[in-house]
Amino acid sequence: MLTSLAAVAAGLALLMWSADRFVLGTARLARAAGISPLIVGMTIVGFGTSAPELAVSTLAAIQGSSGIAIGNILGSNLFKIPCILVAPALIAPGTLPDPLMLWRDIPLMIAVALMLYAVAAGLRGRPLQIGRIDGTLLLTVYAGYTLILVLSAPAA
């Protein structure tokens, strides 16, 4: 038991250290490339921090545990949205770097969540599932959004 707790503590410490290095490195990359830090945060850092969920969900889907895959995705997002937006604001209140976030990005996040619900809820007369066509549709929306985000980004 003590060994397990030590391993969890060591893993958490290593995770915090590596996350700090990752954020510093991407911020440096953004400055060097003249890219808005907001864009780097929403793309590179966002993908990098979601990679573990992707790995777990992919492995669960391969093993036929689609409930674990979908629960991991939904649970992760339900945790990340309020906690990651609220916790930093409690520590150091700030302003949105781009008001467009309120009018484009947040409504799009809600629309994609509703689209995921519509796809998973079987609104097309089939059982609860997300198939290849649904996944392709959601991935295409993500790719299009990322492209729009990068093309409309102001320089750093």
Rank of each mutant, 00 (worst) to 15 (best):
L29S: 04
P97I: 07
A92I: 15
L147V: 15
L54S: 02
V150K: 00
R132K: 12
G131F: 04
R21A: 07
C83H: 08
M42Q: 07
G41N: 02
L102E: 15
P127G: 06
R124F: 14
L114C: 11
R126I: 15
A10F: 03
A120I: 12
W103R: 13
P99C: 11
T58C: 10
I62T: 12
Y117A: 13
G48T: 04
R104F: 15
L137V: 14
L59K: 06
S76Q: 11
P97E: 06
P97N: 04
M109R: 02
L139Q: 13
D134I: 09
I81Q: 01
F22L: 07
V86I: 14
M42A: 01
A30F: 01
F79Y: 10
A92K: 12
I44K: 00
L2P: 09
G34E: 01
V150M: 08
S152M: 06
C83F: 14
S66K: 00
S152P: 11
L5G: 09
P107K: 05
F79A: 11
P99R: 11
A19H: 02
G71V: 02
V150F: 11
T26P: 05
A111H: 05
G71R: 00
G71S: 01
T136P: 10
W17L: 10
T43V: 04
Y117K: 09
L108C: 13
A69H: 06
L151F: 05
L137T: 13
P37S: 04
V56W: 09
P82V: 03
G25S: 03
Q129E: 12
L151N: 07
V112A: 01
L85D: 14
I35E: 01
L90C: 04
I84Y: 09
A89Q: 12
T26M: 05
L138R: 00
S76M: 05
I35C: 00
S66Y: 12
L123R: 05
Q129V: 10
R21Y: 03
A51N: 08
I130Y: 11
G131L: 03
G67I: 07
L151K: 05
L5H: 09
I91E: 05
S152Y: 07
L102T: 15
L15F: 08
I148W: 11
W103F: 15
A92S: 15
L85M: 14
A7P: 09
I62D: 12
Y117L: 13
A121K: 05
A13M: 02
I70E: 08
A121P: 14
W103S: 14
I110E: 08
L2I: 06
R28L: 09
A87G: 06
L149S: 03
V8R: 00
A92F: 15
D20E: 08
F22W: 02
T58E: 13
S152D: 11
V119T: 11
N72C: 04
I106R: 02
A33Q: 07
A19S: 02
S36R: 04
L78K: 02
A120K: 03
N72Y: 04
A32Y: 03
P99V: 12
R104L: 15
D98M: 13
I73S: 05
D105V: 10
P88V: 03
A111L: 11
L54R: 00
L90A: 03
L96C: 08
I44V: 04
A113S: 14
D105W: 10
M109Y: 10
A155V: 07
L15S: 06
L137Y: 07
L108S: 11
A153M: 03
